[in-house]
Write a protein that binds this DNA or RNA. Sequence first.
DNA 1: ATTATTTCGATTGTTGACAATTTGTTGTAT
DNA 2: ATACAACAAATTGTCAACAATCGAAATAAT
Lengths: 257, 257
Amino acid sequence: MKKDSAVTRNSYSEKALLYLREQIINGNLHPQEKLIESDIAQALGISRGPVRDALKQLAVEGLVDYQPNKGCTVALISPRDAYEVFFLRGNLEKLALEKSGCHIGDYGIFVMETALDEMRAVSGTENTMAEVNADEKFHRQIVLASQMDRLVKMWELLSPLNGAMFLSIKNANNSPLAKVLDPTRRRDLVTSHEMILNAIKKGDLAEAYSQLDTHYTKNGERVYRLSLMNASSTLEDTAENSLHMPQSKALLEGTAE
Amino acid sequence: MKKDSAVTRNSYSEKALLYLREQIINGNLHPQEKLIESDIAQALGISRGPVRDALKQLAVEGLVDYQPNKGCTVALISPRDAYEVFFLRGNLEKLALEKSGCHIGDYGIFVMETALDEMRAVSGTENTMAEVNADEKFHRQIVLASQMDRLVKMWELLSPLNGAMFLSIKNANNSPLAKVLDPTRRRDLVTSHEMILNAIKKGDLAEAYSQLDTHYTKNGERVYRLSLMNASSTLEDTAENSLHMPQSKALLEGTAE
DNA sequence: ATTATTTCGATTGTTGACAATTTGTTGTAT
DNA sequence: ATACAACAAATTGTCAACAATCGAAATAAT
């Protein structure tokens, strides 16, 4: 009777949130597309209330733009945004490492290696959602080790956006140019995480900083290149869309060494 | 102010949000006190919908704890939480300074000096809310100079909690012990900000870092001492505090001026 | 033809009622 | 008395209808 697991027993608000978040991250809903509460509610077979809750949460996460009395649109993630998210995520993780003294603990290490295995497993497939989940599981351990609740919460707030950009990289891979880049990227996904983990295992804080920097810097550059392709191919975009990317070389220098 | 139209025409959700946030920060609502949607709605003369929205937002800000199907309580801010908020705020500002190359701009400097004047003005009074506002105005310029929207948003998310702790410091000043500490604190409020601003004016990034660190460290230690006092004095109030919202039948309308 | 004004449709903001869930209470059996 | 089940009260979650607002088409004015 009471066996219904926590997942099945989610509230409608939660269901709508998960549904919309996945739809956005998977690219089924396109940037700047209008999100109409009644339509979403009808599609999910629920009423507008829970949908409104979900949209507000998504607005906090930055996946959705909200304007009072005007409604929500799927957020258009500019190269600038992407840079910021990677920069913040990376630096939050560096702060977490500092706080934990670069000590994750046996269980944490175990989880990270499990996540690495998952990355290797999906490395050949097209299952981007699995990639995102593995990546998140890996990095989450770094943040959790800080034992700072607010830091974790803050980091989690950036995760959906991070996932969205993961996906946008994948979508760009449908273009011919990207096909070439893809294998490189997939290899990097595994190896760069391996190098991070190794540094942490050694307890080498400076090295871990450095690996985190290059990891997020690479991602930043990838998204930047992607945005260029998008800009040239599809979007006859408005000027504010293509905000110039900051110096992509020293993307994350921060307090490292 | 001149934003009269904007303020007056705020949505009920926004009004409820501002009202509740101020009530919590001012200490009129006590930690762990249950927040019952119907009561708040009735007190404000509106319905539960907007109140729910406000509570969800407050939960994101960390001023309120939310449990599904159980409702909201005013967040109990532990010394640990206080430490984390100061730590994060300080480090976000350091990141911002780094990004701006420690260059705030003429207007920014002007605003910061204005904020400093406000601090000096209220230095002798009991107007803690004014202190909070001035402090916020000062530090916000640092963050804005980074020109990183996400960073600003993230920093703003911490502001309500920061304000709440400001206030809790003040409340503790009602105790006899704190009376001694108070003048010191008020002097520090001005001087420590002066030192931060001077470092920034010189463009001395390292010095600014250092001043920010000591500033937030001092605040952290203050809140920590406060928590010790609270623990010893109000020992028995953990379990059953008052349950209902006392005053303010129509306090909501008071926003016009 | 262009600009200003009005109307109207679509969408969000708000509400009060109802359903589901949690919590406290009462009664019963051991 | 204690533990446990059924019930009752309080509170949150959801819904469908209504009101307020925005945007665009239609109309009028210059």
